[in-house]
Every structure is written in C-alpha cells, then in structure tokens.
C-alpha cells in the first residue's frame, strides 16, 4: 500500500487515475494475477469507473486475468528470431507437459503461454519464467529447467550454454589482433575529422 501511495503521489492532483497501470502491476506482483475484486478495488481507490480499469487491464497482455500456476508462469517467445532458432520445439514441450496454450496445467502448478518478442533475440530461443529470462534454450535444457521449477527450485537465470550477456557464440571473431591492445597498431593522427580546415577553404563546386 505504501508503494501504491508512492505511485499515486507521483501524479498531480486530479490526475490520480494515471497510476492505474503501476497499481495494477503491484496487484499482479502481489497476487500473481489481476482478479475481478482487485479491479473493483483499484477503481475505488483511484476513483475511476470500473469499466475504465477493466479496459486497461484487458488492453495490456502482461496483465494476467486468470490465476497462474503456483510454481511458475512460463512465457515462451514465439516471434521470428526465436522461431528460426527452434522455439517451436519449446512450445511443443510446453504443450506436452502442461496442455494447451494460455491455460494452467492440470495440477495447477504451471501456466504457460506463447508470447511475442521479449527483446532477447540475440540469445534466441528464450523463455521468461516468473519474469526471469532463460536463454539459448535447447529442448533438453528446457525440460530440465521446468523439472527444477516443478521441484520448487529457482535455477539461475541467463544463458543455458553459459555465455555472458549476449556475447558472440564461439568467442569474438573480430578485434582479436593483440596489436590493437598493446598500442603497436596505433598511428599518430594528423587531423581530426571535424577540425577546422587548414589553409584556405576551397569554394564548393557549384
């Protein structure tokens, strides 16, 4: 509630409704999803019509409007980059383990959905599990990952093959010459590109 007040106080008087997205997000962080009573509570809190909050909550796909799995919310990217790197196989894993898209698994522990690009294209294919990114996934690795979540663990996020950030696979391919780093490749600079021209400037050719 303190955070809610902090968000509300960010906006000028009479514009408290602007806090609707952050407040809904706090609700989702707390409950895991945005329930119908929560929508009414948010509407009362921000003194706006219930339908307005409902519009916002349905517009943004990141607001979950049904209960998610108790163990994990699995969001597998299915957009172009991930698709070309094999996300179809990951989707199939989910389908097999949990059932159809955008549904809870039968045991209620998992909820999975295919989502659009999450912005980790260089590490494709990837999945976001409970808001953490797991990248460079293979079918086997993904299965293991889900087993771990099912066992109640939280595996460290990041690349499955252990690369740092989005560093190049197989090491750097350019700028490898050690001469670049010991100063021996450096040449003195005669003129800076944007320096004032020496001597008389030539009249531009018309």
């Amino acid at each position: 509630m303190k955070q809610v007040q902090w968000w509300i106080s960010k906006y000028p008087d009479g514009r408290q409704q602007s806090a609707v997205i952050p407040v809904l997000w706090l609700v989702q962080k707390q409950e895991g999803w945005v329930s119908e009573p929560a929508i009414r509570a948010v509407a009362d809190l921000l003194k706006m019509a219930t339908i307005r909050v409902y519009e916002v909550a349905t517009f943004y796909t990141m607001f979950m409007l049904e209960p998610v799995g108790t163990m994990a919310l699995v969001q597998v990217c299915g957009t172009t980059a991930c698709q070309s790197r094999g996300s179809e196989a990951l989707l199939e894993v989910c389908r097999k383990r949990f059932g159809p898209d955008s549904h809870r698994s039968a045991d209620g522990k998992f909820y999975w959905q295919e989502v659009e690009c999450l912005g980790a294209c260089s590490n494709a294919p990837m999945a976001a599990i409970n808001d953490r990114y797991y990248e460079d996934l293979t079918v086997e690795g993904f299965e293991k990952l889900l087993d771990a979540f099912a066992a109640g663990q939280t595996p460290p996020p990041g690349s499955e093959i252990g690369r740092q950030g989005s560093a190049v696979l197989g090491g750097n391919s350019t700028l490898n010459d050690p001469k670049l780093y010991d100063g021996s490749a450096a040449k003195p600079i005669k003129s800076l590109p944007n320096a004032a021209p020496k001597g008389k400037a030539k009249a531009p050719v018309a």
Binding site: A49, T50, I51, R52, Y54, E55, T58, F59
Partner: peptide, 17 residues
C-alpha cells in the same frame, strides 16, 4: 461510464462491465 472498449487489436469488444 458504463460502456467501454476492452482488449486490443483484432480482439477489441464494446461491452459493459
């Protein structure tokens, strides 16, 4: 304010709460 436009894109619908 009882009527609203929910969801987005191809899924938008006019509805009451």
């Amino acid at each position: 304010p009882d009527i609203g436009l929910i969801s987005r894109g191809e899924d938008v619908e006019i509805t009451t709460y």
